[in-house]
């Protein structure tokens, strides 16, 4: 776990929309230590507006967040009329097994999918390192 050396590479910005405070905290801790710059957001609506206004490299999106579901956020972010210049890769992070129709939609719209319980924070970082 090498801390990021400034100037060696661009720090990747991560937006983590996750309502479980402790999980978010663990992810931020590990990601920041691995050289990412992580912003945490627990609210769906606020998370969406952050994703639309600021540029991120990676958006970690929980499917069960307050005020707006992850699927709705995903749809809005993928709708170019509502989110014109999105360059972030969207990775769904969830512990909920999805219905077939939702799963198919996620496969179409998201860049990656992670079952949170299956990965420790470090393993998540390893996963994200491989996301182009």
């Amino acid at each position: 776990m090498e801390p990021d050396k400034p100037g060696e590479q661009m720090t990747k910005k991560v937006l983590c929309i996750e309502d479980e405070h402790f999980i978010g905290e663990l992810y931020k801790r590990t990601l920041d230590r691995s050289g990412y710059d992580t912003t945490l957001e627990v609210d769906g609506v606020k998370g969406l507006s952050l994703a639309q206004t600021d540029q991120y490299d990676i958006i970690l999106l929980d499917l069960m967040v307050p005020n707006l579901t992850g699927i709705e956020i995903l749809r809005t972010l993928r709708d170019s009329s509502k989110t014109p210049h999105l360059k972030a890769k969207i990775i769904i992070i969830t512990n909920l097994d999805q219905r077939d129709d939702i799963r198919q939609e996620i496969e179409k719209q998201a860049d990656g999918y992670v079952v949170k319980a299956e990965l420790t924070p470090k393993e998540l970082v390893e996963f994200l390192d491989n996301v182009a």
Binding site: F22, I23, L26, L96, K116, A117
Partner: peptide, 25 residues
């Protein structure tokens, strides 16, 4: 049945995620 199992699994997985995260930390 699906939603019951899926929800139960979700409830089990959330503390597991934390447990594994904190063990690692």
């Amino acid at each position: 049945a699906i939603s019951f199992v899926a929800l139960s699994v979700h409830e089990l997985r959330t503390p597991l995620t934390l447990l594994r995260g904190y063990i690692e930390a």
